[in-house]
Amino acid sequence: MTAAVAIEGLEVVFDRFRALKGVSLEVREGESYGLVGESGSGKSTLLRAITGLAPVASGTIIVNGKTLGKTRDKAFYRDVQMVFQDPYGSLHPRQTVDRLLQEPLAIHGIADGEKRIERALDEVGLGKGFRFRYAHQLSGGQRQRVAIARALILEPSILLLDEPTSALDASVQAEVLNLLEEVRRRHKLTFLMVSHDLAIITHMCERLMVMQNGEAVETLTASQLIGHRVSEDYTRNLLRASEGFVRTA
């Protein structure tokens, strides 16, 4: 089994602030891997470093066997796509869904655009009726479906998910999570998913890494976490917190 993403000693520095302090991980092909942590843990920075949106100070990132340099070429973006956290901010306010989905196809010079757009919309459960709407005519969940369609339209093998449901209502979250599982199964995708919510990560991922202050705390399988077989106190704290408020009186 080869690694889809292999990261070794990754450091990210923003203006002297070390957002990631030497993190290593390996995501197998076809696996769903979770990154859990609180704000400032560096979990989103790690995704951004892979895509080239965050400056890598040192360390190596290998994606599908290719070591990434300073810049990413077009081929990279056909392999790796990302879904952002805020569905209200990730769609261009002046473009219709049609335009949004056409853009990646135009950039990569893909010919059968019409068919792909219709297929992508069907796949995320939106259908043709949504094709010519603007972002402001869509609900949060529908926007996130469009964002997923946009990520899938280039047929990538790796999908990076940055808190894809944290801005959504619980019932909509369930729908989007189900959709993500479904497209993963259908396209045999590799997921690297970031969330602050342990329950979502154990639901979606086979393995996960707990992060704090830019460092890895521990790496677990979902079943270890479910069975509370964790070795670090921080993880235990997170587990306890995820069970809701407990009155101690």
């Binding site: 949106l53 990413r72 973006y77 990302m82 901010g89 990730s90 769609l91 261009h92 950039i107 990569h108």
Partner: peptide, 17 residues
């Protein structure tokens, strides 16, 4: 720095585009 511009960057669009 909005996500929708980042999203286009992540499709491999050139700065010019």
């Amino acid at each position: 720095n909005s996500d929708y511009i980042k999203a286009v960057q992540l499709m491999g669009a050139s700065p010019f585009r």
